[in-house]
Write a protein that binds this DNA or RNA. Sequence first.
DNA 1: CCGGTTGTTCAGCG
DNA 2: GCGCTGAACAACCG
Length: 254
Amino acid sequence: MPEGPSIVILKEAVAPFTEQTVITAGGNASKVPVEELEGKKVRSFKSWGKHLLICFDDFYIRIHLLMFGSYRINDNKATTPRLSLQFAEGELNFYTCSVQLIRQSPDEVYDWTGDVMNPAWDHKKAREKLEAKSGKLVCDLLLDQDIFAGVGNIIKNEVLYRTRVHPKNRFGDLPEIKKEELITEAVNYAFDFLEWKKAFTLKNHWLAHTKTTCLRCHLPLHKEYLGTTKRRTFFCTGCQILYASANPVVPGKK
DNA sequence: CCGGTTGTTCAGCG
DNA sequence: GCGCTGAACAACCG
């Protein structure tokens, strides 16, 4: 469930527990001293990219749902939660996720301007970070959480399709207008994703992700595992342009 | 029933 | 000590 917009939905769903005191805390997140949460008040819920932050006075809990994480609000599953918080009026359960207790303020840890869902998102800074990594492939850069925190594999595929950019372009080889579009559409698509996910219609809106035919060209879509992390990538070689490289990669050389 | 995945971390290597 | 890569991990869907 976990790209940035899904975490925003989670953050909104748990907001009613703000300023509530944890009565009992449990779970099998062995590294987290859960008993320390008991009797403490949740001051706020924040999100950064794919992280949900449960903020207390002197520390915060960082939840990352990874690929298979799930949660239940005022409900539970048969399995042991990684983290369970019981309040006077309800409970919060997180399963199969990464849980960390961090004794810092989120402001000391996170660059809010790098989160595509955050009002503090800074397009210009993203552009600078991209220029600094301009030799890398756009399919990798969109997944780079230091640049586009919250963007995941679905958003990556859809943004590349929308902007008609071939995933194997190096950022530096894109024309100026495409460089800008890539950044703009990463944010636009993330917010479209949010609205569609809330309406339970997200999948209906996929144009490339999991698709086999290009809606624009009616050509078969390619499915390849691309980039340093070899993630599933859907693209059309008819309308997603691979721009000529100013500095071609020499085979056998980096 | 099995294969595949909306993701990250870390060990091991050069 | 670094940067890179591949393995490991996980649960649910089709």
